[in-house]
Amino acid sequence: MSAAAEDVRARPVPRSARRQAADAFLRDRMAVAGLIVLVLAHAAAILAPALTRWDPTIGDEDGILVPPFSPGHVLGTDEQGRDILARILFGARLAFPEAVVPVVAAGAAGLVLGLIGGFFQRVIGEAVMRTLDVLFAIPMVLLAIAIATTLGSGLPTVILSMAIVITPYIARVVATTAAQQRSAPFVEAARCAGFSEWKILRREILPHVIPAVVVYGTTNMGAMVVFAAGFGFLGLGAQPPTPDWGAMISGGMRSLASAPWVSTVPGIAIVVISLAFNYVGDGLRVALDPRLRTRL
């Protein structure tokens, strides 16, 4: 066996791109912690009936506004004597779909619209981008609330209106990324090599656009948890007595002076889940961008 062959074998095997991304994500302690929180909270939402013996919709008249850390009610009860922990757990069953579904739907719509605007451009692309500009001119929260009020309250309406208002934001991320890549040297090279526009899109553009959408979308899921709570707070979300974190906060407003925990506890749940999504999004940003990764 020659010395040269030895050297080749001694060299570390280059890791796959996916493996490198996973390693970068796992090195980010806050991102891993965020992911663990999300997995645990999701599991708790699924296992809610097994985790609490209280019904989240039926109150106990003898135990209204019980403070937290009382026997039987770890997080206390609300003005109707309903166990707050039970309502938080069952409320998570709404919070997760409200965070994920609008972002996934808007991600798909934004991807198509953004590519039309940023990659194919031409007249139709210009028309799409100008139309989206109009939606930027209306404050997001106001537009979403106007749509939801018009269509009537309820979970599907809330999800639909959130999806509509974040679509322009995602489309803009896609369009700017695609427009930047369009004139990049490797796209020129692909064009010279005789690649069709579709092949360029699939092989050269999408690998840049998809990670950008994933990162932006994940970070936005945190914002959607807060956003959805706003709908619940205004009475536009799931209707009572369904437990909803935002509605729980507004429900506790009247007893704020005597029982501040009724409003405080659901807010903490919102902050924790929203932060967790943000940290996971940050972790993905570094993991999915090889340029940021090597700088570490």
Partner: peptide, 11 residues
């Protein structure tokens, strides 16, 4: 930035 404004207001 991760907390609802109305919750911060109530606190």
């Amino acid at each position: 930035a991760s907390a609802p404004v109305f919750w911060i207001g109530l606190l």
